[in-house]
Simulated scan of single mutants.
Amino acid sequence: MSIRPVDVLLRVGISAALVVGGYFHADLYGRGYRYIHFIGPSFLVQAAVSFALAVLVLVGPWTMRLAAAGLAGGSLVAFALSRTTGIAGFSEIGWDPAPQAALSVAAEVITVILCAASLLLYRREAVRYEARS
């Protein structure tokens, strides 16, 4: 299979969205979340994994895009839980802290959408490649 420009653009977009989401988690960790039991370390891990996956999505196999979608999807679930039932006794209300919450959610939604598009493109190309063989 050949690498298509649209695939490169999708990988770059996924990587950029991961960096943005990771940045906001690292920023919130530094602004005081580090002192929240369980939540603080989770924010730091999420940021570190986001930065690592941003690089791996650019150069790695399709499974890295699947991992990126899983990370972003998990972050969205955690966000929803933190505003409903809470996580480990921690809960927040609305879009606070602003604007980090909204921007992080936007980055994670974009990550999931771009990963889905990239994986669908990959699957389509794989089917075409197999049909030619």
Score class of each variant (00 low, 15 high):
Val59Lys: 04
Val45Cys: 04
Ile110His: 01
Ser75Ala: 15
Leu119Phe: 08
Ser50Trp: 13
Gly94Tyr: 02
Val127His: 01
Ile110Cys: 08
Leu81Glu: 08
Gly73Ala: 00
Gly40Ala: 11
Ala54Asp: 08
Ala72Gly: 10
Ile39Tyr: 03
Ala116Thr: 13
Gly40Thr: 11
Ala16Ile: 15
Ser104Arg: 04
Val6Trp: 09
Leu66Trp: 05
Leu119Gly: 05
Ile110Leu: 14
Val105Thr: 06
Ser50Phe: 02
Ser91Leu: 06
Gln100Ile: 10
Pro61Ala: 12
Pro97Arg: 02
Ala17Phe: 06
Gly73Ile: 00
Gly94Arg: 07
Glu125Thr: 13
Gly86Arg: 07
Ala102Trp: 02
Thr85Glu: 10
Thr63Glu: 10
Tyr122Ser: 14
Leu121Asn: 10
Arg124Gly: 14
Ser82Phe: 01
Leu9Ser: 13
Ala88Met: 02
Val77Cys: 01
Leu76Gln: 00
Tyr33Ile: 05
Val55Lys: 04
Glu92Leu: 12
Ile93Val: 14
Ser104Val: 06
Ala72Cys: 01
Leu71Pro: 01
Ile3Ser: 10
Arg124Ala: 15
Tyr23Lys: 01
Ile3Tyr: 08
Val57Asp: 06
Arg65Gln: 12
Tyr35Asn: 10
Ala131Arg: 14
Ala131Phe: 09
Ile39Val: 15
Val45Phe: 15
Trp95Thr: 12
Ser75Ile: 02
Leu119Arg: 05
Tyr33Asp: 03
Phe43Gly: 03
Arg128Thr: 02
Tyr33Phe: 13
Glu92Asn: 08
Ala107Cys: 07
Ile36Leu: 13
Ala72Ile: 03
Leu114Gly: 00
Ala47Asp: 06
Leu114Asn: 00
Ala48Asp: 03
Arg124Ile: 14
Ala16Met: 12
Gly30Asn: 09
Leu121Glu: 09
Tyr35Ser: 11
Ser104Leu: 05
Leu119Gln: 03
Leu9Pro: 00
Gly60Ala: 05
Phe79Pro: 00
Asp27Lys: 13
Arg34Pro: 05
Ser75Cys: 09
Tyr23Ile: 06
Ser104Ile: 01
Gly21Asp: 09
Val49Asp: 03
Arg11Tyr: 01
